[in-house]
């Protein structure tokens, strides 16, 4: 079961679209577990939120074995600085773990038109699949049409696909089948 927890206010239509998409992608039931307050402890001096700390401090929700929890927020996330610089943070997940975080901060504005809303929803679905994929031990994929392709890649189109490619889908299905429950 995938449990979606919102750390900001999201449109119910967006959450419904996301739930359906996640179910289609992983074949696992999805539900909205409610909205929780954003943990302010993770905020840095520059106003951004440390992605690792935010996920650590995120309010827990009731979950069972093999459940995955997806937190949605809209704040600017920060990753730890790497040897070549800081990669842009669209979210964070614990590889093979149980919790993932997605931020809509870098998305194109939701807007009010059907087209812009559609693009926003698709992007939300893509990033959610991406970080949930990490929970099932998926790595980044070189295929720009796969949801596991890095979110900042220059090869990614403006309105990227929100599906897994065959390899990643097979791998995630294997992992899900191997789950204890």
């Amino acid at each position: 079961m995938i449990r979606i927890v919102t750390l900001a206010s999201f449109d119910p239509g967006d959450i419904t679209f996301l739930s359906k998409t996640l179910y289609r992608s992983f074949g696992v039931g999805t539900e909205h577990a409610g909205e929780r307050p954003l943990p302010r402890k993770a905020e840095q001096d520059d106003g951004r939120f440390d992605a690792l700390a935010l996920l650590d401090d995120a309010p827990p929700v009731r979950a069972y074995a093999d459940d995955k929890v997806l937190y949605l927020c809209d704040v600017d996330l920060a990753n730890p600085e790497g040897p070549l610089g800081e990669p842009p943070a669209w979210g964070y997940a614990i590889q093979g773990g149980e919790r993932a975080l997605v931020s809509t901060f870098r998305f194109k504005p939701r807007g009010v038109t059907e087209a812009s809303i559609e693009i926003y929803r698709r992007r939300l679905a893509r990033e959610s699949i991406h970080f949930l994929g990490h929970l099932w031990d998926l790595h980044h994929c070189y295929d720009a049409r796969c949801a596991m392709h890095p979110s900042w890649s220059p090869a990614l189109p403006d309105d990227p696909e929100f599906e897994l490619d065959a390899f990643c889908r097979d791998k995630s299905e294997r992992r899900i089948r191997l789950a204890k429950t």
Partner: peptide, 27 residues
Amino acid sequence: SLGVPDVIAEDYVDYALMPPAGVKLPL
């Protein structure tokens, strides 16, 4: 080696392999 989570380490790898548009890496 760097003491960071796997997902962050993978971000570092891909940041080097395919940096975002307009980013010049200090190589």
